[in-house]
């Protein structure tokens, strides 16, 4: 079995379209800030494993000027796209642990790729040190309006009664969206066939035109269509409802207990980076996340601001990795 995220799946890993409204805050009047003792001592690179324009890239570009102000050092965003984020992640994993190379990661390269058959040149749990889980986004399951079922419960019942009646579109084989829907199928026993697309950008017209009656993708990408009534939302996959659209029920609400799958963007540094440097970076991120213009940019994109501690992030990474390992093992994914 070989499976991987496709390029676009990775590009859109946090929904390229989730970027809606993520603005580069104007640097504003620079106030001299006392750099903390652990702050990086030289120019800082934030590495993004995807091309410019994706969710990770835009978040990095949003935070870079803020970090620059905190550190008193130039902070640049560097795109190292390729191989679903492997290339950028590997670069950071092998960089000097001095806080001057920071990874803005999507969950794919950290908790999913290690469990796919292709060997990785790095071990995300050993070679990288978590700094902070910056934002979360939930996927949403949507249906073309012509689908009769109005709730996930009805849909699952119908799909079980008529195996093979439904198809769902997702943004790439082995990507988080694909795996989450497969988990849903596994938990409910519904037979719904998967149709892979190159990224959420291609999934949207497919469900609008009813080429596939169902689709899964990050909520922010679908918000305009949900508002226009051209797709109907069935459920979000996270454990809690999304603050951007609290009317949409969760999969757990729809009768699949303990279903809690959401995606994150977070920062890592090379393992071995001094603890005070990790703390300094995390503090700078949290300070940036408290600025109203930064908050507004992120929230208007439909993402949830987190800014966790390194310890909390480490737990999320560990449990996410365990979950995906078990999931990938048990799923009946398409074989090569």
């Amino acid at each position: 079995m070989v499976l991987r995220m496709t390029r676009r799946a990775a590009l859109r890993a946090f929904g390229g379209l989730t970027a809606i409204g993520l603005a580069l805050a104007a640097a504003g009047l620079a106030q001299p800030v006392l750099a903390q003792s652990g702050a990086p001592k030289g120019p800082v690179r934030i590495i993004v494993g995807f091309p410019p324009g994706g969710g990770a890239d835009l978040l990095a570009r949003l935070l870079a000027p803020e970090l620059q102000q905190s550190f008193g050092q130039p902070v640049v965003v560097e795109n190292r796209p390729g191989a679903q984020g492997r290339i950028g992640t590997d670069l950071v994993a092998k960089a000097e642990p001095d806080g001057q190379t920071i990874l803005m990661a999507t969950e794919g390269a950290i908790v999913i790729l290690p469990h796919l058959p292709e060997p990785l040149p790095y071990d995300p749990l050993k070679d990288l040190a978590p700094v902070s889980l910056v934002v979360r986004t939930t996927p949403v399951i949507v249906a073309n309006p012509s689908v009769e079922a109005d709730s996930l419960k009805d849909l699952i019942a119908d799909a079980k009664a008529n195996p093979g009646k439904y198809f769902y579109g997702h943004s790439g084989v082995g990507g988080p969206n694909h795996l989450m829907f497969e988990l849903l199928k596994q938990k409910t026993g519904a037979k719904i066939e998967q149709v892979p697309y190159q990224g959420t950008g291609a999934v949207i017209p497919a469900v609008l035109s009813n080429e596939v009656p169902l689709a899964i993708g990050y909520l922010p990408s679908f918000v305009p269509y949900i508002k226009a009534g051209t797709v109907k939302p069935l459920a979000v996959t996270s454990g809690e409802r999304a603050s951007a659209m609290p009317d949409i029920v969760t999969v757990a609400d729809a009768g699949v207990p303990d279903f809690d799958m959401s995606s994150w963007l977070g920062m890592f540094v090379p393992a071995g980076t001094p603890a005070e440097t990790v703390t300094a970076i995390r503090d700078a991120v949290v300070a940036a996340l408290q600025k109203p213009e930064v908050r507004k940019s992120i929230q208007s994109g439909g993402q949830e601001i987190v800014g966790s501690t390194p310890e909390a992030f480490a737990k999320v990474v560990q449990s996410g990795s365990d979950n995906y390992r078990d999931l990938i093992k048990t799923l009946d994914l398409p074989k090569q």
Binding site: L3, R4, T6, R7, G82, Q84, I87, P196, Q198, Q336
Partner: peptide
Amino acid sequence: VTTGVERLTFGLSGLGDG
């Protein structure tokens, strides 16, 4: 796209995106 298999890359992950 359809199966996620890497093809004709000579095993170079840098060619995974085509």
